Simulated assay, not measured.
Amino acid sequence: MRLSPLTVLTLLGACGAALAQTPATLDKIKASGSMTVAYRESSIPFSYLGGEGQPVGFGWEICGKIVEQVRRATGRADLKVATQAVTSQNRIPLLQNGTIDIECGSTTNNSERAKQVAFATNYFYTGTRLLVRAGSPIKSTADLKGRKVVSTTGTTNYQVLRKLNAEQNLGFELIAAKDHAESALLVQQQRADAFGMDDILLYGLRASAQNPAELAVVGEALQVEPYAIMLRRDDPAFKKLVDDTLAGLMKSGEFEALYKKWFQSPIPPKGINLNAPMSQELQDNLKALSDKPAL
């Protein structure tokens, strides 16, 4: 059916009015008495399923602190908190359509995503490296020539590897896996030679493997990117609450205590210590409190 120009304008006006009436996150939560917090199933140690099948992790705990502030701000001591697993592919759409209210995982804050969502203060910095089987001849990206390389679909790492492959004419086959756990499994099963992902996630996946000694993290970091908690765009009140919560944690020393708990102490499910010292970029941001995106 062909619509007249007047009908199209009327429909567009109705859509615009509907969008304008969409409540801000805190108003939505106050009215409904519920909040939906998203988590990742295998983003160790930020957000993942622990030994009892429940979300745990550094980002997850920080989001717990944010939920406490939401309770105070909305006056809803009876606030119900629902949880929703998300993937690299669906995390942004589910945030935009209101299915989730906040995402607590390992999402890179970059300029392209900032056109669709908002990010809180950066709370980690990482770079793309490679997970390989121990004893692999792959020691750097130059060794990927003619190999099979996997990365998780919907991630910046996949794009970085695709660009690297084209610019350096490495000729490797780039495979897209649905999540980090599947990507790591392809390497373990020798169906891929290397898994390109944020180094801290690779350390976490290695630590949680059945035999961590069978895997190694190698190569130079291809770029440094910030992680941040993801929010809906154009919601300054909620962003301020989240940023203020992070600022309070960072200034009080509680953020550093949480960092030591998840990056420098034994963590579930296997009690392995990642032994990952805090980067200089993150130390600097405890003072700067920047939400500046990667390019």
Rank of each mutant, 00 (worst) to 15 (best):
Leu79Asn: 03
Ala18Gln: 11
Tyr259Ile: 09
Phe172Pro: 13
Asn169Trp: 04
Ile272Gly: 11
Ser151Phe: 06
Thr22Ile: 15
Asp101Val: 06
Ala18Tyr: 13
Tyr203His: 14
Leu174Trp: 00
Cys15Gln: 09
Glu68Lys: 12
Met197Trp: 02
Asp199Gly: 13
Ala221Cys: 01
Leu289Arg: 08
Ser111Thr: 12
Leu215Gly: 09
Phe46Trp: 06
Leu286Lys: 07
Asn122Phe: 12
Val86Trp: 05
Ile175Trp: 11
Ser290Glu: 11
Ala237Met: 03
Thr22Met: 10
Thr25Gln: 08
Asn109Cys: 13
Phe172Ala: 10
Ala216His: 12
Gln280Arg: 14
Gly204Ile: 03
Lys260Leu: 06
Leu11Asp: 02
Leu205His: 03
Val187Ser: 05
Val218Gln: 05
Leu94Gln: 13
Met278Arg: 11
Ser279Gln: 06
Ala73Gln: 11
Gln96Val: 10
Lys145Glu: 12
Ala85Gly: 13
Leu185Asn: 09
Ala221Met: 07
Ala209Gln: 04
Gly127Gln: 05
Ala228Glu: 01
Asp27Leu: 03
Pro137Met: 06
Ile66Gly: 04
Val242Lys: 08
Ala216Cys: 05
Phe195Gly: 08
Tyr123Ala: 00
Pro269Val: 12
Asp244His: 04
Lys139Asp: 07
Gly204Gln: 07
Arg162Asn: 09
Leu249Thr: 03
Gln190Glu: 13
Lys148Tyr: 01
